[in-house]
Write a protein that binds this DNA or RNA. Sequence first.
RNA 1: GGGCGCGUAGCUCAGUGGGAGAGCGCUCGCUUCACACGCGAGAGGUCGCUGGUUCGAAACCAGCCGCGCCCACCA
Length: 873
Amino acid sequence: MDAERRKALETTTRWEPGEVEQRVFERWMEGGWFHPPAEGTPEANYSIAIPPPNVTGALHMGHALNGTIQDVLIRLHRMQGRNTMWILGTDHAGIATQSVVEKELAAQGVLRTELGRDQFIAKVWEWRHLHGNTIVEQYKRLGASCDYERERFTLDEGYVTAVYRVFAELYSKGYIYRDNYMVNWDPGLQSAISDLELEDREVTDTLYQIAYPLEAVRGHEAEEAAADAGELVVATVRPETMLAVTAIAVNPRDDRYRDVVGRHAILPLVGRRLPVIADEYVKTDFGTGALKITPGHDPNDFEIGRMHGLEEVSVIGEDGLITENAPERFRGMTVTQAREAVVAELREQGLIRGEEPYTHDVPFSHRSGERIEPLISLQWFCRMNELAEPAVRVVTEGRVRIIPDGARRQYLNWMERIRPWCISRQLWWGHRLPVWYRGDETYVGEHPPEGEGWEQESDVLDTWFSSALWPFATLGWPDTDAPEFTAFFPTDVMVTARDIINLWVARMIMTSLEFTGKVPFSDVYVHSVIQAPDGRRMSKSLGTGIDPLDEIEVHGADALRFGLLAMSSTQDVRYSEARVQQGRDLANKMWNASRLILLNAQVADAAAVRAAAAKVAADDVPVEDRWIASRLQRAITSVTESIERYDFAHAALDLYDFFWSELCDWYLEIVKARLYGDDDEPVDSAASATLLWTLERVLALAHPLMPFVTEEVYSYLPVSESEALAVHPFPEPDPDLIDEGAEAEIGAAIELTRALRRWRDLAGVPAAQVLSARANGSDPHELVGRLARVEFGSGHGEAIATVEGVELLETEGVDPDAARARIEERRAKLRSEVERGERKLGNEGFVAKAPADVVDEERRKLEAYRAELDELG
RNA sequence: GGGCGCGUAGCUCAGUGGGAGAGCGCUCGCUUCACACGCGAGAGGUCGCUGGUUCGAAACCAGCCGCGCCCACCA
């Protein structure tokens, strides 16, 4: 270590992540360690495809947790020597990106429609080149070790080829087709959107009861005269859609309506003859028990209509205005105007039988925020049944493990009743469907066929269509000889949040099986959603969002990573800044503990350190060295196993416990005397060796979780075998270093030290005062005297207290009354323990039925408590 | 309505059959030569409620109360 660096180490008493993180990250990039060669087999290699963030996106807490988890896995496997690749890329995010650019243009007074499709798309590309890299840069702040040199985009050239190939094949298999179907029309976007892009909002509408006169039954003049043929009253919150009603439905078991099934009603204002049909769907206990059927404007009615072969009438157009299918006087009105006009006319004709406020959930567009208008429209669909079947099988057979199990059930649940997927969107930004029309002819393929007059379909594909190909299209598919594809596909794990299991994960599994014949990943790990501290969703519009970059700014990336991991779980969790601060404190602790070691370790030369380290566990090294080596093995095991079973909270907290409580609070305090030496004792170089040996391993262990501080400290190690900690071998637990004797011995010494300190505190002994003491049995470990400030051996005075077999002797300034109180307290505790043990062992059922080792343990404890009680008198 | 899950210290959460844990907060004491983002000690919990299973239940089962998420959604 040169003088300058040593000076920096001496004077920097706090971990200051700001400039260090940037410098460390640049070193990683220069080292090229995140950019693996496309070699080897997918079985030997390790790869993860990142859930591609939207190009328009900014890093939010969800990304931060998702990215941290993947980076932990990636770094662990890279350090374990696997050829490791984290596949990076962004999603073109059709709707989101189009809206952003559209808004930006609107601010300049330019409308998308004025610009025309080609020019608008050019503007979007321009935007992407200017701003599309923001989120990728933000992932770097987090420390994400993605392969930044192989970044992909769902609209880059090769990716488009993959998308078109998939579309064409699904079309030729007959899975993709065009049909009139009820879609969720977003009047704001002027596009169909999927069920999954909806959000329900509570709305209070007016529920109108409207009378529909029944048509007289021919040949029953008497009845006609008597009852005016009667009427059916139906309830609706959308009177304007009555213009498109084509039937009335009642429940077949509803006695009130048994006689009217098969007859006809007359649609007021329009005059259409409406058959009265019977369908189980109609609830007898809601409204009047009679339901108007509007196949053109209601998803349920649409299904009933198809089932009964009803006419489908659309009176609301894609522009949100009343169409020519409605009576002339309503045409061209907005939905709201039409509603008022219809109600007014009905009122005039005396057909309104009731009205009341009605609060219900109504779907709104997640994207534009507008109320969804269910419409029948000509769209492209993909039938999912054939694709779903093998995708269910790989999960039930365990070829794809979905963790946790709740997420697995959610997946299977959804797949069981999968429905056709509407894959067309009326947008400009996206993959334009590879479909060409000329008159009545339709051709599907990336390029138009020979000849004049072919026009390409104007719709684009749902963004999720391209995302569904992510794990293989990013690696070069459909070129199955592409080096990246042969080396890294299938990937190992997909890390994601619960909300897109159906939207995305399921579809990746389906397309991957269909097109590559392989599962895209063997594990799906579904992690928490981070909520705002008050339990609401973190969202920009609610103002509940917390920006991970702000947290990195304040506490450092390692702190945020640790905090997110520690708070993560399979449940949704509330964001806890305290956990992030815990991470910051741990990073600081690592920095300072490392300073202690690095500034004080005696290093003759590299060979000496290696030689000393080689005998860390030898019998003749001090027991505390064997203890820390043994505890380290246990920490390595627990942290590694936790990560491997995706239990990141325990990995983080176990690391914390080992580092803070065992290494810092005990081992470093114990070893200081040997490290510094004093008048009597020379400096012990074995201590230095153990410290350096331990430090190197614990840094490596912590590195996947907290890469920056560990990498920085690693650069100060006097002896290190790797260019960077990022590519240093990950420690493996060594069973030979487990030393139960040393653990028991130091464990007992720790217990005793704590008991003595407790006594001191309760007795009000000043912190600096050294107490005289006498051990009843053999002298405790040297560390007890030092750490508890107790001097053993020399005193002859009377014992004023006994603590865990140690007699504390009368010492000037120590209050004997407090001591007696303390002893009495201990006696009381022992008596209750003895009582508890006797009661338990006196229980015949317990002795007879509990496992022998549990019973033996109880007996052992009881003996020990009795012995101590006797000793106290 | 169906499915899944949660209810443990003041707060955020671990703990899944054998003596209730962590972090933060709180109290007391420490300018102890790595760290006050620190060190030492401590207080604080009828583990939502009621039954049941068991020698033994925070944990397993049933019911109830409260909360959340996902599906399906009554016009």
